[in-house]
Nucleic acid binder design. Structure first.
Length: 592
RNA sequence: GGCGCUGUAGCUCAGUUGGUUAGAGCGCCUGCCUGUCACGCAGGAGGUCGUGGGUUCGAGUCCCAUCAGCGUCGCCA
């Protein structure tokens, strides 16, 4: 006599033939042939076909005939090999089926608002409203499981490298700079507020002072910024910090972790070490501080080729000290004039004043440049520098250098997208190094940190002398396929240096004391040199999954307006609740 | 906050120049069907054309406003 085996819907094979099995799950689809009913039973492990024959199991057949999509049932019967020729090779369990002896309905389902058994296109608002149903669909089942495997790989790897997972608080203090904070009113302290962390930055530094040497956390972070595609008000970071590291130490651990993550979660081999570029080189060659290295199409400074040009716009640009940058598109000569105009119009939306082009057509170059400017010497020189050949096109941008780089960088990505050169199955990592310590704040014209104010200056720059904008930082970004995965730095551990940085950034002594006094005080007690990095989990999983939207890798995401359409949040609260919190609302009247 | 796209059956969509009773596929309901696996066949139900106003003899279609979803830019030390 066979013992009854409780099985998932993904595990039975012909090896189990003859055993009695009990399966529970959702009705994926049914096929009622009148005399014979097929049920595809689903759980997260797979699909198993249950067959009900009214001659041998009349009661089960009656139940089976009443089943509808998403009913939850328990089916019991013998595992048997499917008749020859009826195997389903698309299913892991496709060699067998369950010959049902009994079927119990555990719960009925209303007709779902959208199909569950496939990934057919459905309005995202509807999916978010019924997220628990959306989660049952194959796509989200896959990406949430992928996320689990990836995060588990991170924990395993960092554990093996001596890191401790430590939680840091969610109710903390408002930070003066950076993104807007979410505030939480305190009932017990009238008029005072906690803030939700934008990152565990200060706490992880204090954990280093606290002697834990190697810390990590899968940390939830909150930023109350304006909405944007691929942004969520709460998101997750792999946050880590270590004592006594060099930049090389952090890089080595990250490369190991990412390679392990991609291997363990995806089976993808990632070559290490990753290529490295300086910040300046990334901007010069790719027009971005997060270059997509899956393809070349580099930028070229072709200013010298235009010395003495008849083309007034470029001549003027050169005389003002602006740059002329070129980008060559392989096969670009096949673009029509109209296509070129569209590209130029696009460049304008990126902030370009215009876009000149030279099409290296087989019957001679065509160009938006005036004939007089398009000398053979110029064409030869551009071809030599950009390595463009007949059949290609060369695009030219003249502007202030950093602006021209940014525009050319966007154009480069756009053309690559058009040409399908950004293969989501290919993973091109790189490090961007030698960031400036400070940037010019466009609004106030003051200094702002390129990363954050705790970043240590590069060796040799500790004196902070000379032009602050020329100072380099021990700051490193890891980039994948044109997306910044994470950003880190060696931190300042010397309280005097930290004070100097705050002063350069325009903080008064009072400000520093009030906002960062606890950190500076901690540094007075033998703070070890330390550094670390934080990586965006949602983005990494998105790139692994080859998906389009970060919402595809989060179980319960907010919509584009940062609302949860399922639970309907945020919502106004009762006046009594506000009163208890000592909070009064001041809502602007609706516009009329 | 700005700009763009989209709102027609439960879902995905079509709907001509403004003109009779607004359609299709899937889903749903009923019946038939013993080897299907997106089963098949026959029949049926299902619509405030997002909402409000306007133009017109007549509006799904044109205009204005508004709401919602998605995308995009500013913003994100």
């Amino acid at each position: 006599m066979n013992q009854l085996r409780r099985a998932t819907c993904g595990e039975l094979t012909s090896a189990d033939e003859g055993s009695a099995a009990l399966l529970k799950g959702w009705v994926n689809t049914t096929r009622d042939h009148g005399g014979l009913i097929f049920i595809d039973l689903r759980d997260r492990f797979g699909l198993t076909q249950v067959v009900v024959d009214p001659r041998s199991a009349p009661a089960a057949a009656e139940v089976a005939a009443s089943l509808r999509s998403e009913d939850v049932i328990a089916a019991q019967g013998l595992v048997r090999r499917r008749p020859a020729g009826t195997e389903n090779r698309k299913l892991a369990t496709g060699e067998i089926e369950i010959a049902a002896e009994s079927i119990d309905v555990l719960n009925r389902s209303k007709t779902p608002p959208f199909p569950i058994h496939d990934d057919s296109d459905v309005d995202e608002g509807l999916r978010l409203r019924y997220r628990y149903l959306d989660l049952r669909r194959p796509h989200l089942q896959r990406s949430i499981a992928l996320r689990h495997r990836a995060v588990k790989a991170v924990r395993d790897y960092l554990d093996s490298r001596g890191f401790l997972e430590i939680e840091t608080p969610m109710l903390i203090k408002q930070t003066p700079e950076g993104a807007r904070d979410f505030l939480v009113p305190s009932r017990l302290h009238a008029g005072a507020f906690y803030a939700l962390p934008q990152s565990p930055q200060l706490f992880k530094q204090l954990l280093m002072v606290g002697g834990f040497h190697r810390y990590f956390q899968i940390a939830r972070c909150f930023r109350d910024e304006d909405t944007r595609a691929d942004r969520q008000p709460e998101f997750t970071q792999i946050d880590l910090e270590m004592t006594f590291p060099t930049q090389e130490d952090v890089i080595e651990i990250m490369e190991g972790m990412l390679a392990h993550m991609f291997e363990a979660a995806l089976g993808a081999k990632v070559a290490t070490p990753f290529p490295r570029l300086s910040h300046a080189e990334a901007l010069r060659r790719f027009g971005s501080d997060k270059p997509d290295l899956r393809f070349a199409m580099e930028l070229h400074d072709v200013g010298p080729a235009f010395t003495g040009t008849e083309f007034k716009i470029f001549a003027d640009a050169l005389s003002r000290g602006n740059a002329i940058l070129a980008l060559a598109e392989t096969g670009g000569a096949s673009r029509s004039r109209r296509d070129m105009d569209a590209l130029a119009a696009l460049a304008t939306t990126f902030g370009a004043k215009g876009l000149a082009w030279i099409s290296l057509a087989p019957d001679g170059p065509k160009s938006s440049l005036p004939k007089s400017a398009l000398t053979p010497q110029l064409v030869d020189s551009l071809k030599a520098q950009t390595k463009a050949q007949e059949g290609d096109a060369i695009y030219l941008l003249a502007d202030e250098r950093s602006l021209a780089q940014a525009i050319a960088g966007k154009l480069r990505l756009h053309i690559a997208d058009e040409r399908g050169m950004r293969d989501p199955k290919q993973f091109a990592f790189c490090w961007v190094l030698d960031f400036p310590l400070f940037e010019r704040d466009e609004e106030s014209q003051g200094l702002q940190p390129a990363h954050h104010p705790f970043t240590a200056p590069a060796p040799g720059s500790e004196a902070l002398s000379g032009d602050p904008l020329q100072l380099r930082a021990q700051h490193y970004d890891v980039v994948l396929n044109g997306m910044e995965l994470g950003s880190g730095s060696i931190r300042i551990h010397d309280p005097a240096l930290q004070r100097k940085i705050f002063t350069l950034l325009g903080y008064s002594d009072d400000d520093v004391e009030r906002k960062f006094g606890f950190l500076l005080e901690a540094f007075e007690y033998g703070a070890p040199p330390h550094g670390g990095i934080a990586l965006g989990v949602d983005r990494i999983i998105l790139l692994m999954a080859g998906g389009e939207s970060i919402r595809e890798v989060i179980a319960f995401p907010k919509n584009q307006r940062f609302q949860d359409l399922m639970i309907n949040a945020p919502t106004p609260v009762e006046p009594a609740a506000l009163k208890e919190l000592h909070v009064r609302t001041d809502i602007p009247p609706p516009r009329t």
